[in-house]
Amino acid sequence: MISRIRQVASTLCVVMVLQSTSAIVHAQTPATSSTPDAIQQVVSTGLMNNYADGQFHPERFISRAELASILVNAFGLDKRAAATQENLAEVQDVPASHWAFNNIQTVLKTGIMRGYRGNMFFPNQRVNRAEAFAIFAQAYGVYQFPDDTVAEILTPYPDAASIPTWARKSLATALNEGFVNIDAQGNIKPLQPITRGDMAYALSRYLTKQQQPGV
């Protein structure tokens, strides 16, 4: 009988240890950018597309023109009042023949993205993660958090100090809403170029929130 009790107690201890370990592993697992489910979701909804070879290539970087097109499609920016203005934004390096001309006009008219000095947009330029998530938050709607709340949201991330000052409030919104994936150490990596996988993750989270309010 005593042997049986010891066996049961030993089994319970093992189960408790496994449950505890599982919880710790789950807590340390970072949000990832290129999960198959996220990619399938954004491709099936038409927010992003595979390449001609049928692959998504989540590791590839996103250009400003691509970001503009993704955001117009995701947030319906072309339906906003500012986008219907007849006057075109003057952009020296994006002619009417450019594949993303209309979408670039839309993000400029709505103020979601801005051009550079000399009326340049640099459509092929890579976008870093701070810029991309800040712009994503602008399209979504930036929460007007007070500075202490912004600091509270950003403080847990080891590399939060490298977030540009102008992007802090917008990035706090994106983080608060769960749109930003992080690495295994909890870093945001704000100055690294954003990848297609990163954007797929953000869009997937956004779609989930639309389908399940409160998530």
Rank of each mutant, 00 (worst) to 15 (best):
P123C: 13
P123Y: 11
P123V: 11
P123G: 11
N124T: 14
N124Y: 15
Q125K: 15
R126C: 00
R126T: 14
R126K: 14
R126P: 02
V127N: 04
V127P: 04
V127F: 06
V127H: 03
N128A: 01
N128V: 08
N128H: 05
N128Y: 00
R129N: 06
A130F: 09
A130N: 10
A130H: 06
A130I: 09
E131H: 11
A132R: 04
A132N: 08
F133A: 03
F133C: 03
F133L: 11
A134N: 12
A134G: 13
A134Q: 13
A134R: 10
A134H: 12
I135W: 04
F136L: 12
F136Y: 10
F136G: 04
A137M: 07
A137I: 02
A137V: 03
A137G: 07
Q138K: 15
Q138V: 10
A139N: 06
A139V: 07
A139K: 03
A139R: 03
Y140L: 12
Y140W: 10
Y140G: 01
G141F: 09
G141C: 09
G141H: 09
G141A: 09
G141E: 08
V142Y: 07
V142P: 04
Q144P: 00
Q144W: 02
Q144M: 07
F145Y: 15
F145S: 04
F145D: 05
F145C: 07
P146E: 00
P146R: 01
D147H: 01
D147C: 00
D147W: 00
D148P: 00
T149I: 12
T149R: 15
V150D: 02
V150A: 02
V150I: 14
A151G: 02
A151S: 11
A151I: 07
A151P: 01
A151D: 13
E152Y: 12
I153Q: 02
I153H: 02
I153V: 10
I153S: 01
L154K: 08
L154S: 08
L154H: 09
T155V: 13
P156E: 10
P156T: 10
P156Y: 11
P156N: 10
Y157G: 07
Y157T: 05
P158W: 07
P158G: 08
P158Q: 10
P158H: 08
D159L: 04
D159I: 03
D159A: 05
D159R: 05
A160Y: 13
A160K: 11
A161M: 13
A161D: 14
A161F: 12
